[in-house]
Design a protein around this nucleic acid. Structure first.
Lengths: 218, 218
DNA sequence: AAAAAAATTCAACGACCGTTGAATACTAGT
DNA sequence: ACTAGTATTCAACGGTCGTTGAATTTTTTT
């Protein structure tokens, strides 16, 4: 089966090129011709491997969603296994949500940063986000919220969902590494400084969760 | 000067149409022809009132940035005037950052939601965001961070900037009203429920700021 | 009412868009 | 070597893109 291997290689080259360009310029900002040029292949080959431009985009998103979801689930289960009797802390659960991102970035920064940029664009778009995010990420998110509910007894569902929503915004913007904080801070902070992020984000967000949970209980 | 009025009317109709379509489908997702069709005017008229498509987009952003910035500055100064001797609380400062958004949405929801969607898209794009956000919003943001520094004595600059960065992510996603939370929560929470947001966001974020500031002081 | 200026329309430019069908090169099993 | 099927290229379709210059209508000034 040499053929299938080669086909897979080309398919992946197309997906790589598409991922990079979509992340940089958005879905509408990139043409199939540009993608195939970067992939070093003929335009029409895109339509041999994929149904349409939209399908190509979906496959770009799908390819890495499974990897990410699996890693996150594993991290959450590991945390829960470490607490057979009591509930894990909020920090631990949020850590299980963010640490996989850091691991993947450590493995191949360029590759995964692109993907996170893509997610950030999808997530803050009213048109696209709904369907894609709901289909591929929300199921796992519900699992995390369940865990958070146990870690925050007495916290209302509303507070839980809003807290996660704030988390989601902070997280997607941060991991997209847009460089916004570099400009604003005049160089004091760097978007790519994952160590600083890892030190701060879980604490920041856990404190937020607890603040709403405490209000809930009144 | 009836003419100038009329010119302004047409210009504004074009800006309105552009704002709505750009917010819905992004810069590249909309053609000048579609904008002018929605504005009920000829295509080439766009190039009489604006230099280019890109210029049109910039003017859409600029038009409301001043209003928003002025309102936010006024709110911050009011808070500071209420504390002639001591420093305002973190909640009060964050409130001065978010309340103007709520006021504007209360005045004309459709109009301003569109604008916030636009900001959300810009903010999470690596290509565009840098220049536009830095030019039109960062100066005022620096002013707010200065106020926060006084409210959190001993907090390091790094923690301050990162905290604001998390705030920025949560805020832009929330006010873009993407509907993500509606799907995720199965109807328990609604994107457009500004009362719920106003009750929760400042508490959540202020707790985050304090968590990092307390760590700072060790 | 005539002239000047501003606002709007008309027609078109070359370039690129997403997509397709048929022709060709390559590889697999026989 | 022959065949079947897979992967890739070639050439083109109608349509839309951003943009422009000249003609025309509408308003302001004289």
């Amino acid at each position: 089966m040499q053929k299938a291997v080669r086909k897979q290689q080309t398919r992946d080259r197309i997906l790589d090129a598409a991922e990079e360009l979509f992340a940089q310029r958005g879905y509408e900002g990139v043409s199939v011709r540009q993608i195939m040029s970067q992939a070093g292949a003929d335009v029409s080959l895109a339509y041999y491997h994929f149904k349409s431009k939209r399908d190509l985009f979906d496959q770009v998103m799908l390819r890495k969603a499974d990897t990410l979801n699996a890693l996150r689930l594993k991290a959450l289960e590991a945390v829960e296994r470490r607490h057979p009797d009591d509930a894990p802390t909020v920090e631990e659960i949020i850590g299980a949500f963010t640490h996989p991102l850091l691991e993947l970035l450590a493995e191949d920064h360029e590759e995964w940063q692109r993907y996170f940029q893509l997610i950030a664009q999808i997530n803050s778009s009213s048109e696209w986000g709904g369907e894609l995010m709901t289909r591929y990420f929300d199921p796992l998110v519900s699992r995390f919220i369940e865990a958070l509910r146990k870690a925050l007894p007495g916290c209302s569902d509303e507070d839980l969902y809003w807290s996660y929503h704030f988390l989601s915004g902070a997280l997607t913007l941060t991991f997209a590494e847009t460089g916004r904080i570099d400009n604003l801070s005049g160089g004091v902070c760097r978007s790519s400084d994952m160590h600083s992020i890892n030190e701060r984000m879980p604490s920041f967000l856990a404190a937020g969760f607890r603040a709403l949970a405490n209000k809930s209980r009144d």
